[in-house]
């Protein structure tokens, strides 16, 4: 299954949520193949189902129907422990950063390493390297409340990369940031992608974001993903 380099495969995915007592179809028959080393964009207006789609990719949301395969592994077949292991290979960053407010920058980056039992000393060494990678070595001891949005997202990126994942999921990662900061965060993601060979999935409503960074883009509307890819140069207009 992974000979062709397919990292994420979405097959016949449906997701329903109850809304006002009625089941609402949020995703309808989504099929995607995302390959190793590419930056894959999913663009759509808010409410189109794109956040639900990316949450299905690491099973934060369980699909109503259909399959998610990560490197050929069907997530529906995994027990909770196996699922946690797969998740550790998939870093995720969020619109609201979701850092632990009571931990400083370096301890936030150590968090995923603590979860897998990496020794504190080794975790801190690795966290310092990552802080440097994201250009935040000066802010090691700062708490999230003392950082700007862009700085918080840099720490969140470092945290997402702490376990050397092969996949990075970005859920509206730049939507809370100003255009300048957005640009610098996207540059950082692109640089990390080339350096680490990451496969990146970007969920956004901003055409500028996909234009700047994505190799392939699909659009999503009312839970349906467009059949054809959008040529990335079409966003020039």
């Amino acid at each position: 299954m992974i000979e062709d380099g397919c990292m994420i495969e979405v097959k016949g995915l449906y997701k329903e949520f109850p809304l006002n007592g009625q089941m609402q179809e949020v995703l309808k028959d989504v099929n995607l193949r995302i390959y190793k080393g590419e930056v894959f964009g999913i663009i759509g207006v808010s409410g189109a189902g794109k956040s639900t789609l990316v949450r299905c990719m690491n099973f934060l949301e369980k699909p109503t129907k259909g399959e998610i395969l990560i490197k050929g592994k069907n997530l529906s077949d995994l027990n909770p422990k196996e699922l946690r292991e797969v998740r550790r290979n998939m870093g995720m960053i969020f619109q609201q950063f979701q850092l632990l407010e009571q931990r400083n920058a370096i301890d936030n980056i150590c968090f995923p390493m603590e979860l897998v039992g990496i020794k504190r000393k080794d975790a801190r060494t690795k966290a310092r390297e990552l802080l440097k990678t994201v250009g935040m070595e000066e802010k090691e001891r700062s708490f999230p409340s003392q950082l700007s949005g862009g700085q918080k997202q840099r720490v969140a990126i470092a945290r997402a990369l702490a376990l050397n994942p092969e996949i990075l999921l970005c859920d509206e990662a730049t939507s809370a940031l100003d255009p300048e900061t957005t640009k610098s965060i996207l540059e950082l993601i692109r640089e990390l992608k080339s350096r680490l060979g990451l496969t990146v999935v970007i969920i956004t409503h901003e055409p500028d974001v996909v234009k700047a960074i994505c190799d392939r883009v699909v659009s999503i509307k009312n839970g349906v993903v467009s059949e054809s890819e959008i040529p990335t140069d079409s966003f020039e207009n």
Binding site: N58, L60, K81, R88, M90, M92, Q98, L115
Partner: peptide, 14 residues
């Protein structure tokens, strides 16, 4: 914040 809990789950926290 539910988002922080979700982030921890995405990192494979039990």
């Amino acid at each position: 914040d539910a988002g922080v809990i979700e982030a921890a789950q995405s990192m494979g926290a039990s």
